[in-house]
Amino acid sequence: MPPLVVVEELHHSFPDGWDALSGVSLSIERGEFLALIGPNGSGKTTLAKHLNGLLKPSHGRVLVAGMDTREVPVSTLARHVGYVFQNPDHQIFSPTVGEELAFGPREQGVPAEEVQERVARELEAFGLAPYAQVPPAVLPPSLRRKVAVASVLTTCPELLILDEPTVGLDALEQEELLQRVAAYRDAGGTVLLISHDLELVGRWASRCALLSAGRLVALGAPEEVLADVEGLLAAGMRPPALVQLSALLPELGLPKRLFCPEELGLLLAPLFGS
């Protein structure tokens, strides 16, 4: 099966002359959970916006589900690619949460019954059922973010792009959100996650792409990309705490894929007889 997304030698220059992306090539397989990391201004969002046609390549090309994004309107690509923006307020407008969740599939001409099913499913999954009749604009930021993600998931996209979805969420809410996203991936979906939280990336992503100044500087499994302390520092990123620990104390012999303290606890417990 061909990859869902193919990015070939992508260059993007903005009208003010800024080269946001230079020669980025990568592909995203179906069922993958790819994390896009890099410092601010490295081109993460610019790259993501090419995947649903909001931005068109200056050079190179982007294929999504076999379609060249230069030749297909955004509304067509939106049937395949769901995009959750950094600021949930930019997408929320409906009078009630239920309506908000129903907007996407309705625009796509999904039959009313199925729209209701999908809305009910996501309301349940995100714990939003009590707010179904509430205007989303008056909800607190964390719930608005959930509404934004849920309203994209009701369109059942093949590729789900999440641009820093955990900003403003507490640890428990982050966990809930990522679990829902993982469930979507397990059901056959493909995820592109943009995040600054490398621990989170290490725990959830199946592959990791590091951007720096518009170039793709590393692409591989999280245990490779995130364990490369020098590479991360050179790109302007701070490696995850446990990765730094294993780099400082190689004699501990910690595994490369170690991102959460619970795992470290399990590893160290026998040493202390517990």
Binding site: K49, L54, S75, R79, V81, H90, Q91, F93, G104, E107
Partner: peptide
């Protein structure tokens, strides 16, 4: 700027303006 960002977000949700 907000108007442009919101337009992008709605286009990404499948809003067809053309």
């Amino acid at each position: 700027r907000i108007y442009e960002q919101v337009t992008e977000a709605q286009l990404a949700r499948g809003l067809d303006l053309s």
